[in-house]
């Protein structure tokens, strides 16, 4: 099993007191499969994603990626999993301002020591990024930026891609184009995808859906 979440719980201290964001959540995702995680705002979708990415720690429960339990790992271990096994696509600010588009695309792959120039060339061709390679992130549009973000996550050839509303900042048309490219290339790379979205239409295009409601998986 690529991803196996068991009884995850997570609370935050807020000004209004302790808020339980995730409550005993369990789900699985097989290699090469895609899963959409839907839910209302504040349902805990992003938190779940952040826990899987090792960006935050769960209060209780286990996260197994390819059988390896994240909950026992230290900061360095988590960073390594993230670097080597996980591609992340966020709603905004995915890119590194200091680097060109070409450098951004290759960055994580090189960091992980898995730089495959022909695969990246393929990605940038497919994503229509070739004319933009020498530019800096702030010089291209939001839709282009998200394509780069998708390309960068795939460039790593990770086992798992975690995406948090990757098209949330785009208009409908652009969103559809980016999503289509994403799913095509995902299939090509063989990576699994866990995507957080509040759009039922997007969720419908993925292999499976789960609905989160007030911190628990809806039946």
């Amino acid at each position: 099993m690529l991803l196996d979440l068991r009884h995850l719980s997570k609370s935050f201290d807020t000004a209004e007191g302790v808020v339980r964001v995730l409550n005993d959540v369990s789900l699985t995702l097989a290699a090469g499969q895609s899963l959409a995680l839907t839910g209302e705002s504040g349902a805990g979708k992003s938190t779940l994603l952040h826990l899987v990415a090792g960006l935050e720690r769960a209060d209780a429960g286990q996260i197994l990626i390819n059988g390896q339990d994240l909950t026992g790992l230290d900061d360095a271990g988590l960073a390594q999993i993230r670097r080597k096994s996980i591609g992340l696509v966020f709603q905004q600010f995915n890119l590194i301002p200091a680097l060109t588009i070409a450098e951004n695309l290759a960055f994580q792959a090189r960091l992980a020591g898995r730089h495959d120039p022909s695969w990246i060339a393929h990605l940038s061709r497919t994503l229509g990024l070739e004319p933009l390679l020498a530019r800096y992130p702030e010089e291209i549009s939001g839709g282009q930026q998200q394509r780069v973000a998708v390309g960068r996550a795939l460039a790593l050839k990770p086992d798992l891609i975690l995406a948090d509303e990757p098209t949330g900042n785009l208009d409908e048309e652009n969103a559809q184009i980016v999503l289509a490219l994403f799913l095509d290339l995902l299939a090509e790379s063989g990576a699994g995808l866990l995507m957080v979205t509040h759009s039922a239409r997007i969720a419908a295009q993925l292999g499976a859906q789960q609905h989160l409601q007030r911190g628990t998986i809806a039946p």
């Binding site: 900061d75 360095a76 960073a79 993230r82 966020f90 600010f93 301002p97 960091l111 992980a112």
Partner: peptide, 15 residues
């Protein structure tokens, strides 16, 4: 933070 967050997300430790 804008510069650093993507690096961190890409697997670099805060320390």
């Amino acid at each position: 933070l804008v510069q650093i967050a993507p690096i961190w997300a890409a697997g670099q430790r805060r320390r």
